[in-house]
Amino acid sequence: MLVNYTAAAHWPIDASRLDLVEEFRRKPRGPHGDELQKLLHRMRWSGDSEASGRYVLVVKEPGRRWALGRLPRMRGKPIEILSNQVFTSIAEAEWEVFKRRWEALTGTSLPPSFKEPMA
């Protein structure tokens, strides 16, 4: 068998690299520098906890509105929709998920300046 292991992405995240957070906030859709690419790969491969599943967007209105959701790892289990987290742009949603993943993976809170909406 040819298997994509969830544990394969192991680039170590340095919680002090807030410059990468800033880079992502400025350009959520890229292009990104080498280190931010590695950080994003780590997050996108398996950055979300096994228990609560992968962050996804659920289309509320095609091309217009998306809700945040969580996709369980196990087939057949329903996708949870976080109805209070609705976005009108993909970039805005990417930034929200980036912040959640950063805090989960580093175990640190982002400084208040990053809590503000996108510039």
Partner: peptide, 11 residues
């Protein structure tokens, strides 16, 4: 998600 370079958008 890594291949598609962004959050999965599910219908």
């Amino acid at each position: 998600e890594a291949m598609l370079e962004g959050l999965l958008t599910l219908s």
